[in-house]
Amino acid sequence: MGFKFEGVSRWKLTLPKVEGYPKVGTEGRDGDAGNGRLGRGSNEYAVCWDDWENGGRAIAEDALSK
Rank of each mutant, 00 (worst) to 15 (best):
M1E: 12
M1L: 11
G2P: 04
G2W: 02
F3V: 10
F3L: 15
K4A: 10
F5L: 13
F5D: 03
E6L: 10
E6C: 13
E6A: 13
G7V: 11
G7E: 05
R10G: 11
K12H: 14
K12W: 09
L13G: 02
L15Q: 12
P16E: 02
P16N: 03
K17Y: 09
K17W: 07
K17P: 01
V18N: 06
V18R: 12
V18I: 15
E19P: 09
E19A: 12
G20D: 08
Y21L: 14
P22A: 12
P22S: 11
P22H: 06
K23Q: 11
V24N: 10
V24Y: 09
V24W: 06
G25E: 06
G25Q: 03
E27F: 03
E27V: 10
E27Q: 13
G28L: 12
G28F: 03
G28Y: 01
R29K: 14
D30C: 05
D30G: 11
G31Y: 06
G31I: 07
G31W: 09
G31M: 04
G31A: 08
G34P: 00
N35S: 10
N35V: 05
G36Y: 08
G36I: 02
R37K: 14
R37H: 05
R37Q: 11
R37P: 00
L38A: 01
L38R: 02
L38V: 01
L38D: 06
G39N: 01
R40F: 03
R40K: 13
G41C: 06
G41N: 11
G41I: 13
N43Q: 09
E44P: 00
E44M: 08
Y45S: 05
Y45T: 08
A46C: 14
A46N: 15
A46T: 06
A46P: 02
A46Y: 07
V47W: 01
V47L: 15
C48I: 14
W49T: 07
W49N: 08
W49D: 07
D50C: 04
D50Y: 06
D50S: 14
D50R: 02
D51S: 03
D51Y: 02
D51R: 04
W52S: 01
W52F: 05
W52Y: 09
E53G: 07
E53L: 13
N54S: 15
G55F: 04
G55S: 05
R57E: 14
I59S: 02
A60Q: 06
A60T: 09
E61R: 01
D62A: 15
D62M: 07
A63Y: 12
A63S: 06
L64Y: 04
L64A: 14
S65R: 15
K66H: 11
K66W: 08
K66E: 12
